[in-house]
Structure formats: C-alpha cells, structure tokens
Design a protein around this nucleic acid. Structure first.
Lengths: 112, 112
DNA sequence: TTGTATACATAAGTTTTTTATGCATTAGAA
DNA sequence: TTCTAATGCATAAAAAACTTATGTATACAA
C-alpha cells in the first residue's frame, strides 16, 4: 500500500465508473465500496472525495439528490446524460493508459 | 492523449524501469525512448524529467556520469545498488496498482 | 538565417491530493 | 451510561507532482 500516489489523477474516473455501475451512491458509500473492491488497497480520503464530487457536479456530470435517512443527511449522486458520455471517454482513456503502462513496465521491455 | 494526468505519480517508476533495462541513459534519451515506446502517447516534459532525475540522484538511487559528446554535454544516469532494489519495489507496486485499477474499471465490475 | 533537433536547467503557476480539522448523529461496547 | 467507533457531511492549509514558460548553447538543414 505504498503506492497510493500511483492513483493520482484517477479519482474522477473511479467515481464515474462506480456511478455508471450503481446508478446512485452517496459519498461515504463510495469510500466504502472502493475499499471493499480494492481489498483495502485504495482508501479514498474525504478531503479528496468531497471536493471531487463537488467539481463533477459543477461540471454538470453529476446530479445531487439530498435524502434524510433517520436523522442523518445523505447526498446521493448520479450521472447526468453528459456524465454518462464523459464516463465512457474517461474509461477509454483509462484503458489506454493501463495498456500503455503495462507495456512500459513489462520486464521484457526496453531491451529491443 | 487527453489522459496525461493519469501518468501523474508514475514518472519515477518509468525512469527507474528504463534504467534497469538499458544500463545507462541520459535525460533527452529518456524522453525520446518513452515517446517511442508509447507511440507518442506519453511525452515526458523537461520540466518534469530533470527535477525527477535530480531527486532520484539526491535520494541515492542514481549515479551520474558527465560525458562530452562532440562539443555537447550529456549526463548519463545509471542505477546504484540501492536504486536497483528500489526499482524492484516500485515495479511490484506498479503491477499491483495496474491489477487493482484494471479490476476497478472492468465493465463487469461494481454490479455484484 | 531561421527553424528544428539536441541537451541541459529552473522558476512560476496549476492541479490534485494529503493532512488536519470541524460538526453532528447513531450504534455498540465498557 | 458514558465513551468510542462508525456514519456522514464539509473545508482549509500544506505538500506533491506536474505543466508551461523561459533561458542557455550547439549542430545542421532549408
């Protein structure tokens, strides 16, 4: 888990992907889901998450819906139409990045 | 190529990996090699590269050897013993990151 | 002689994240 | 029952890692 910095730049994509798969989620739920899916390898901090959600909303990629569960507040986020398109783009870029990086760090590479 | 920001955090690992494969390289050579290996997808800027090389050297992971080729200066970098160890660590972390991220953005994922 | 390539370097600004707080509710353990 | 951990939001200061913009200098081709 000393590789947290490799995740830099991928937070938006991760959030969008989760919302593409789960329709609607709230902030805390996202942190827990990511922790679960990555078996604890990636822990999204609140200081990173909330500003990121606000930015995606400001950019028109997410819609918010406030809900009251018991006496506690929740903000459910879901993709807008534009958000869905942007998610597809970002996932494609991510796939290309992963492929390129895999290629770059492949032990056999760099020897040719 | 709109995914440059995904490469944030991976520059050190890329440099170390290239030096593990090529014994010794100089800065400009590294930028060209990366451009070639990634088919132009990743362009390392000098503003990022040189400070990174200086830091790796300061951290004791690289050794420098200045060479004069014609009338022009070159600084060849190579891994120190410690640098070789650290490269192995960073490559392992990178593989784990790539695996985790692949898993996260896999279209089938998040539906369970 | 002017643009492109090679080769180094740094400084200012931006983006994105970590770290550190802060507030409030609720469940469960001591 | 009281204190701790978990739930749930938020922001501000600082650090990290870049990009962008320069600057210097050599070499070569159009």
């Amino acid at each position: 888990m000393g590789n947290q910095k490799l995740y830099k730049g991928s937070l938006q994509t991760i959030i969008l992907k989760l919302l593409a798969s789960n329709t609607k989620m709230y902030g805390y739920e996202i942190t827990q889901k990511v922790k679960e899916l990555t078996k604890g390898e990636l822990k999204i901090t609140e200081g990173a998450l909330y500003p990121a959600l606000h930015k995606l909303e400001a950019d028109g990629l997410l819609d918010v819906e406030v809900a009251k569960v018991g006496n506690r507040l929740r903000k459910y986020y879901k993709l807008t139409e534009n958000g869905t398109k942007e998610t597809a783009n970002k996932l494609e870029e991510m796939q290309e990045f992963l492929k390129t990086m895999q290629h770059l760090v492949n032990p056999k590479f760099g020897l040719e």
